[in-house]
Each structure stands twice: as structure tokens, then as C-alpha cells.
Simulated scan of single mutants.
Amino acid sequence: MCLYCGEPKPLGDFLRRTGKRSGSEARRGACRDCRKRRRSAALEAGDEASDPMPPSAQARPHEALPAEVEAAEAAPKRRVRRPPPEPPADAMLEPTREAELRPTRQGTIRMRGRTDKGRRWQQETDLEMARCLVREHAAVLVNRFTIRRLYTNRTFRRYILERDRYTCHFCGEYGDTIDHLLPRAKGGHTTPLNCVCACMLCNQNKADRDLDEFMEDAEPLDTFLSAGNRDDRSDEPFATRPL
């Protein structure tokens, strides 16, 4: 039954309602003829709501804002070549034992883990990736056919940011994102030895480039410190340092 003309119409004349609770009785509102009449009446009346492009939003030349001009004219960030990240403190208590892994009859390795909500999951991976995860301290050996991931997505992000003290690995400024030293597009994995803290600008500028290509203009850390700059990764807590 149409709400406007009050006549019974086929279900195909009404718009389909979507959602989890929508069913055969979910079609309601105005029928097709009433929608056409309302649309034509709105166009004849010159209703502003029916205009797809009001005059205030018409295309005009883009005017650069002062902030955009300053960002475009700003000098590139000063990059510092820092040592690679070290393994976790408790990772050296037991050898990684990645050489003991053996594939199953299907030629895969079982990998277990937990989600951020604590639910268990299991999937299969290849032998080379499993050995890389164990070697770079992202997983441990359960048996020769199974490995277990040590971090969830949330705990891994918190671990990397706290380990690097929210300091960008490339420029030394404040950072709150995670970047891969060897990009995933070139075979890198999300492991503690391949991930570092990075600021948003350095993360976007590096993209899928190799570390040596991105840091070719960087200066050594000793030169950076001897020039009167203080290393942000000192023993002083980050909360007490100005941003």
C-alpha cells in the first residue's frame, strides 16, 4: 500500500530496504508513480534541494591555502642512519630453532595465534615464511610442524611504538605509525626485526622503496649527535621530552 496515493501496488514499484532485518515486507513508502510525480514537481518549482550542483559548489580554480604553500616550500626532513632494531629482551633466552621445522604431508606449516579479542585462530603457511617468522622472533616453535605467533595486531603495534619510544626511525621526530624496513611488496614480513616506528611523512615517502634507497642521503648517527643534537632514544622517558 502506497503511503501517498493509498493504492495497492506490486512490490516491485517500491524501493528495496536493505539490512539484516529486511524481508519481504520491508518494501514500503512511495510507489514508483508517486516518486516520479514528486520529482517532476520539485524540478518545476525550482527546488534547491533537487539541484545536483548548487552555485556555491560549482567548479572553480583551486586556491592554495597558506598551510599548503608552507608545506610545499618546506625543506625535506633531515634523515639519520640508525642501527637496526634489536631482538626482544626475552628472545635470547632460547634459540629460535627454525631449522627443526618440517612441512606436513601437504607441504605446509601450521600456524596458530590469537586475535585482539583473545579468540584462537589457525592457518597454514609455507616453510620459508614460517622459518622467517621464527628467526625474526615473531613466532615460536610448538613442534616441528607447528609455530605460534607471539603478538596480536594490537600488542605488536604497542610493542613497536614503546620499544622505539614513539620516535621515528628515519628522522628522529615524533612517530605513531609502523613501517617495514624491507617492504612487504618485496618479501618483508611483520616481525620485530623488520618493523620500526615512523612518522606519517616518512612512512608515506618511503612507500615500497628499499631502506638503502630511501636513506641514501642520510647522515650517520655519530655525526648527527656531534652536531649538537640529542638522541631521542636516550634513557630519558618520552613523556618528559618536548615534542
Rank of each mutant, 00 (worst) to 15 (best):
L3G: 13
G12W: 13
R16L: 11
R16S: 13
K20D: 12
R21D: 02
A26P: 02
R28I: 08
G29R: 07
A30D: 06
C31V: 00
R32L: 07
D33W: 00
K36T: 02
R37D: 05
R37T: 05
R39A: 07
S40L: 15
D47W: 07
E48K: 09
D51M: 10
D51W: 03
P52G: 08
P54G: 03
S56L: 13
A57R: 08
H62L: 04
E63L: 00
A72R: 15
A72G: 05
E73V: 15
A74R: 09
P76E: 00
P76Q: 13
R79D: 11
V80Y: 14
V80L: 09
P83K: 04
P83D: 09
M92P: 04
E94V: 06
T96K: 08
E98K: 05
P103L: 09
T104H: 14
R105K: 14
G113Y: 07
G118V: 07
G118L: 04
R119T: 12
R119F: 08
Q122S: 15
L127A: 06
E128Y: 02
R131E: 03
C132T: 04
L133F: 08
V134F: 02
E136Y: 04
A138N: 00
N143S: 06
R144C: 07
F145L: 14
I147W: 06
I147A: 01
Y151A: 03
R154N: 15
T155L: 15
F156T: 11
F156Y: 10
R158V: 08
R158N: 10
E162G: 09
R163I: 06
T167M: 02
C168M: 07
F170Y: 09
F170G: 01
C171M: 04
E173N: 10
Y174T: 14
H180R: 05
L181Y: 11
P183N: 05
T191N: 02
T191I: 01
N194V: 10
V196M: 11
V196P: 12
L201W: 05
C202F: 04
N203H: 12
D208S: 11
L211V: 15
D212F: 10
M215I: 12
D217E: 15
D217L: 05
D217Q: 13
D217R: 12
A218Q: 15
E219K: 12
P220V: 07
L221W: 14
D222P: 14
T223W: 07
A227H: 14
G228P: 13
N229F: 09
R230M: 10
R230K: 12
D232Q: 12
D232K: 01
R233C: 08
D235C: 02
F238H: 14
P242D: 04
L243F: 15
L243N: 07
